[in-house]
Amino acid sequence: MSAAGLTIRVAAAALLATFLVAPDLFEPLLRPLAPAGAPAVYVQSSLAELAAIHLGLTALATLASAVVALALATFVTRPAGAEFLPLSRSLVNVGQTFPPVAVLAVMVPAVGFGEAPTLIALFVYGLLPIFENALAGLTATPRSVLDAARATGMTARQAFLEVELPLALPAILAGVRLSAVIGLATATIGSTVAARTLGEVVIAGLASSNTAYVAQGAAAIAALAMLISDGFGVVERQAARRLGPSPSAA
């Protein structure tokens, strides 16, 4: 990473942190967007606290999606599980079939309001990109490489852990990045079912016709998404340089 690129990333992260911790400093920028007599800065909850909960929900759901999707992709790329590939694809595509609001509406009667239905919706939506990218990475390993690994005395498990998985890592990370960004955006609507996220600020702005609130919440979410995507991108490039490039479905 160049010094200029690192400086820009650090400056962007510092600006976002300042915005979340001390939003009052940005009141002059938000004031023109607020209705006459209405507050320009959302003060009902701490932006930093909402951002932390928002990120926590996204991270937990993405981790769960990654574990399940990678396990499923590994299974269907083994001889014993190859015939289950069409079924697996159908299962991970289910989450993309319904809009997030519909998933939340279905889950609320089952698990109640709050973070639980939001986590389930994020988990379901995060499966597809990780599964497809893991599948692309694992199936891209040349047969000659696997034959060479087995010829050196590696077991099938060792060949997977020491050859296939490292070579597929850049593609898998690309899928996790995409899933995390999708989850970060989707978590916003969790506030419609009483989950505490940055969507709370956006919804409050829409309910009160206060564009300043909408801009405040949307800006924080967009900045987090860009920083997370950029961070994963750096890790992907480092993995590709160290371990060798792998095709990505993203």
Rank of each mutant, 00 (worst) to 15 (best):
A38C: 05
L206R: 06
E162A: 07
G56V: 11
A3I: 11
L104K: 01
L135V: 11
Y213Q: 06
I228Q: 01
Y213M: 08
R237F: 15
L243C: 10
L167S: 13
A215N: 02
L33H: 03
A148D: 04
S248A: 13
A11K: 03
V202N: 02
E164D: 12
G37V: 05
V103A: 04
D230E: 11
V92M: 12
A13I: 14
S246V: 00
P247Q: 01
F232P: 04
V76S: 05
R78C: 15
S179D: 14
I172D: 08
V43N: 09
E115N: 12
E236K: 07
N93W: 11
V10Y: 01
T186E: 00
A22G: 08
S2K: 07
T18M: 07
R242F: 10
A61R: 09
A204S: 15
V68H: 01
S65C: 10
A36M: 08
A250S: 15
A38V: 06
V103Q: 10
V111M: 04
D24P: 04
A194T: 13
A225T: 06
G5T: 13
N133R: 00
P245I: 01
A148V: 14
V181T: 11
R31A: 11
P100M: 04
I182C: 02
A250K: 03
A4K: 10
G126N: 02
V111D: 04
V124R: 04
A223F: 02
S45Y: 15
L173P: 12
I172H: 02
A171L: 11
L169T: 14
V67N: 11
T58I: 05
A185K: 05
G199I: 11
A136H: 01
D147V: 13
Q216C: 08
L25N: 12
P245N: 07
L91H: 11
A218Y: 03
T211K: 07
V111I: 10
L91V: 13
P109D: 07
P117R: 06
V106P: 07
D147Q: 14
I189M: 08
T139A: 12
L25T: 10
A250Q: 05
A250I: 08
T74N: 06
T118E: 00
S179L: 11
V67F: 02
L72I: 09
A116K: 07
G5R: 08
A136T: 14
A249P: 04
